[in-house]
Simulated scan of single mutants.
Amino acid sequence: MKQVLLIASLLVASLTSQADQIVNPQITDAVTPQEKGLAIAEEMKARNTGWGDSEAKMTMILRDKGGNETDRKVRVKSLEVEGDGDKSLSIFDEPRDVEGTAFLTYSHIEGNDDQWLFLPALKRVKRISSSNKSGPWMGSEFAYEDLSSFEVEKYDYKFLREDELDGEKMYVVESYPTYENSGYSKTITWVDQEHFRVHRIEFFDTKGDALKTMDVSDFKLYLDKYWRGHRQVMQNHQTGKSTIVKWSDYEFNTGLEESDFNKSSLKRAR
Rank of each mutant, 00 (worst) to 15 (best):
K241A: 05
W51G: 08
T243D: 00
S175K: 07
R200M: 11
K263H: 05
L117M: 09
S129V: 09
R231N: 05
I244M: 00
N262L: 10
H237Y: 06
Q26Y: 09
I91C: 05
E110T: 12
G139I: 00
T59M: 06
N132V: 12
E257P: 03
S54D: 08
T254G: 03
A56Y: 01
K207R: 15
L147P: 11
D93E: 06
T28F: 04
D215Q: 03
F92V: 10
A56M: 12
Q26P: 06
S9E: 15
M170E: 04
K36I: 00
K246G: 04
V31R: 13
D93S: 06
F150M: 06
G183E: 04
G52W: 12
S78N: 15
L79I: 04
G255L: 09
L10M: 08
L104T: 07
L62G: 04
M234Q: 03
I109W: 11
K126W: 07
A19Q: 11
D71P: 05
V233S: 03
K220E: 13
Q238M: 05
Q26L: 11
K36F: 00
A269W: 00
E55V: 10
I61T: 14
F196Q: 10
K186N: 07
L117A: 05
W51C: 06
A46H: 02
K77V: 08
F159Q: 01
S248N: 04
V4P: 15
R197C: 04
P120Y: 02
M58V: 10
K263C: 09
K77P: 12
S9N: 15
G67Q: 00
